[in-house]
Structures are given as structure tokens and as C-alpha cells.
């Protein structure tokens, strides 16, 4: 029987079952331990980036090439017929007739879902506006599993922009299938959206709203930091909250030994550089894991068995 992700579109985390997420995590771990240069042999993957994203694009392209596949694509919609007014539906129809899968990022929310309705080959969402970025969540899950040895019953604190941070939303949704416990730490204006809290309530997931990073540190397995964007606030307000959600090495004294700090990157000043040298810092390894998680996704989507 083919694996459950074979020839599936990868659009959104709520589309995934618990078993499918575990499959990606296991496959990523296997590919990290024992690289395979044959899984995408003779496969051609399009990376269509209608808005620029250096890290995601390079990570996907690295994943394809490390698996023996080749890549075509573009890194900016300015050089495509989108500029001439072509619909995404038409663009995708054409590109899907050339390639074995399409990895895409697009500034409009829902773009990947639309693409999946017009594509003859699997679409892999590399980010659609403020909506979803499933490969980020899968690499986060892989990193959680790698550092904690399990996905079940983890205690995770999310810090920073909980309102607009799609990585936070998707990871919280994913972990809610694994009985997680959450702490939410951030400015009131950037609190977790109501609909997500309701979703967690319905699944019986416990979460606590905390006002400082220090108070949650002794209780958690994972500290998931995000950037509070300056443009979300007026200058006076930003100055007031700016220092409040910054992590420094001296705040980690009471952390559990297994506690790891993650961040989707890029970081600006929310994690002081003195944290980088602590045994808790794991964000650079997390970024590296992006390649393995994406290798796992591409391999599973394009091979009946891996």
C-alpha cells in the first residue's frame, strides 16, 4: 500500500492526521541519519516563489538536489506572466504539465489551495500570505521530536507575536493532536486569536497566559520564540514592550536540562546573542532540519514507499 501522503497536495496543517505528521517526522529522522541521493532521481520539481523568501526556497531546492532531483522555477513574480495578468490557475496548469511537483509561495492567502485545484501534480505550500506554511510546522515537529524524543505531552511556551504568527498557530494546532500543554507569553495586543483558543478548548488542551518569559522557563520543554514586528505598534508603544519579550542567557538559570529554544528565524533582537552558546539554543539546528523535513515531504509525496 502506498504511504498516505503519496501524490497528495501539502497545503495546510489541519489537513494532516496525527499519523501523517509522525510519518514525516520519522522519515526526516531517517534521512538525516542516512542521506539518500536517489529518492528524487529523474524528478523535476518547480519552485515557484511569487514572493521572495530566501530561506524557504533555498531549503526546498537543497532538499530536492540532495535527493537527486532537479529544480526549475523563479524567485520573484516580477519576471513571470503573473505581471501580465495571468491567473494563478493558468500558471499552475502550465507548470504542472512540465514538472513532477510544484513548491510554491504566494502573497495571497489560499493560493496553494487554489493551485491544488488546477494542478495535475502535487502542490507543496511554501507559504500563502499570512495563512499556512506547513513545511515549517513539520520541521518544528521534527525538531521537537529530535530534542525531546517524543511529540506527546510536551509543554511549550510561545513568546512574542501570537496574533499574526502563522508558525505559532500551525504548531499549536499540530501539537493539539498530541496532548500538549501551552503557555502564551506576549503583548496583549498580539494575543492568540479567539478562534484558535476555542479550537484548543474543544480539544481539551490546557493553556496559560503568562506575562513574562522568566515565570514560564522552569516549567517548559520548549521555548518557541517569535519576533514582535515593529510595524504592528506605534513607536511609543513599541518602545514600551520591546524589552519585555527578549530572551537573555541569564534568564535560563532555572530551565530544565532538556529545554530547547526554537525560533522560525530571522531573529532580530528578541534572542540576545549570548543565548546562542547555551546548551538550550537550538534554532540554528532547527533551520538545518528544514532541509530534512522538506526532503521527507518531497520523498513521501513522490514515492509510494520510502
Amino acid at each position: 500500500m502506498p504511504n498516505p501522503l503519496y501524490r497528495k497536495h501539502i497545503i495546510s496543517i489541519p489537513d494532516f492526521s496525527r499519523a501523517e505528521m509522525e510519518l514525516v517526522v520519522e522519515t526526516a529522522a531517517r534521512l538525516k541519519a542516512k542521506p539518500r541521493a536517489d529518492l528524487l532521481q529523474d524528478r523535476l520539481i518547480a519552485t515557484c516563489f511569487f514572493e521572495p523568501s530566501t530561506r524557504t526556497r533555498l531549503s526546498f531546492e537543497t532538499a530536492v538536489q540532495r535527493l537527486g532531483g532537479t529544480v526549475i522555477g523563479f524567485s520573484d513574480a516580477a519576471s513571470t506572466s503573473t505581471k501580465k495578468g495571468e491567473t494563478l490557475a493558468d500558471t499552475v496548469r502550465i507548470i504542472s504539465s512540465y514538472t513532477d511537483a510544484i513548491v510554491m509561495r504566494h502573497p495571497k492567502e489560499g493560493a496553494a489551495r487554489v493551485a491544488s485545484e488546477f494542478s495535475a501534480v502535487p502542490i507543496i505550500n511554501g507559504g500563502d500570505g499570512a495563512n499556512q506554511h506547513p513545511s515549517q510546522t513539520l520541521l518544528d515537529l521534527f525538531t521537537l521530536h529530535e530534542t525531546q524524543g517524543r511529540l506527546d505531552n510536551l509543554t511549550v511556551a510561545f513568546v512574542g507575536d501570537l496574533k499574526y504568527g502563522r508558525t505559532v498557530h500551525s504548531l499549536a494546532q499540530a501539537l493539539s493532536l498530541f496532548g500538549a500543554k501551552f503557555y502564551f507569553v506576549g503583548p496583549e495586543a498580539l494575543a492568540m486569536p479567539d478562534y484558535l483558543c476555542e479550537e484548543l478548548d474543544e480539544r481539551g488542551i490546557s493553556y496559560t497566559i503568562a506575562s513574562t518569559i522568566e515565570e514560564v522557563i522552569p516549567h517548559i520543554d520548549i521555548l518557541y520564540m517569535t519576533r514582535v514586528q515593529r510595524e504592528r505598534f506605534d513607536e511609543a508603544e513599541y518602545q514600551k514592550i520591546k524589552g519585555q519579550f527578549v530572551l537573555r542567557a541569564d534568564m535560563l538559570r532555572h530551565a530544565r536540562p532538556n529545554m530547547k529554544i526554537l525560533h522560525p528565524l530571522p531573529r532580530v533582537d528578541e534572542i540576545a546573542t549570548d543565548v546562542d552558546a547555551t546548551p538550550h539554543a537550538y534554532y540554528f539546528e532547527q533551520a538545518k532540519n528544514g532541509v530534512y523535513a522538506r526532503q521527507a515531504l518531497l520523498s513521501l509525496v513522490l514515492n509510494e514507499t520510502v
Binding site: T87, L88, A89, K108, R113, V114, E117, D128, N131
Partner: peptide, 26 residues
């Protein structure tokens, strides 16, 4: 902006009726 029909799933909660867009998932 694309040639698709709008589509919402509807969920009645205790206090409100919520509609989720199939595309943007809001």
C-alpha cells in the same frame, strides 16, 4: 482574483455561528 467559487464551512458554536473560508482558512 482566481476563477473559483467562494466556499465556507459553517459551524454553530454556543455563542455564535462561525464561517471558515476554504481558501484563506480564516
Amino acid at each position: 482574483v482566481e476563477p473559483v467559487q467562494s466556499h465556507f464551512s459553517v459551524r454553530v458554536t454556543e455563542h455564535d455561528t462561525k464561517m471558515k473560508c476554504k481558501y484563506c482558512e480564516k
